[in-house]
């Protein structure tokens, strides 16, 4: 399946190979963090490294390879880079808000977050009192 020219220069092959190996290893480490970290609030940090460094190295390698191979400037991978860098924080923020909202609504609080965040622990101690209010707020925004 591999379609690489025979007379490829070492000045191209070595940086591209290095970038590919670095990017794939970093992606692997990020997903390993996604699998191994104990709590959701820690787990959400795992894929961030694979999005930024992994995708960045791969896109850099692709740009370098096609620029030298076609002997013109091929930089449309910058589109993907910009798009991924713009959308990854949006997805992470929405997921984080979802997790906080759902945990508060269910009166569930992770034990390892209590001492670090006094606001969240305050919510946790009055979780029973807050619960009807949150439910009311939800039914306000959802008239059915």
């Amino acid at each position: 399946m591999i379609n690489i020219p025979e007379d490829i220069s070492p000045w191209l092959a070595i940086p591209v190979a290095l970038l590919l190996i670095c990017g794939s290893l970093i992606t692997l480490v990020g997903t390993l963090g996604l699998l191994r970290l104990p709590h959701f609030y820690q787990r959400i940090h795992g894929p961030a490294i694979s999005i930024t460094f992994g995708a960045g190295s791969f896109l850099l390698a692709s740009m370098l390879y096609f620029t030298v191979l076609q002997q013109r400037l091929v930089i449309h991978e910058l589109l993907i880079t910009a798009f991924v860098m713009l959308t990854a924080p949006v997805t992470a923020m929405l997921l984080m808000r979802t997790a906080v909202y759902r945990d508060l609504r269910n009166g569930r609080q992770s034990p390892d977050l209590k001492p670090a965040t006094p606001l969240a622990s305050g919510h946790a101690t009055t979780a029973g009192a807050n619960r009807p209010g949150l439910m009311e707020e939800q039914s306000d925004s959802n008239p059915e």
């Binding site: 591999i2 690489i4 490829i8 590919l20 990017g23 794939s24 290893l25 992606t27």
Partner: peptide, 16 residues
């Protein structure tokens, strides 16, 4: 040098 790029491509495919 073709071999190096081939090996790195296969390795990164395996990792992904």
């Amino acid at each position: 040098m073709k071999l190096l790029l081939e090996i790195s491509l296969y390795f990164s495919q395996f990792c992904i």
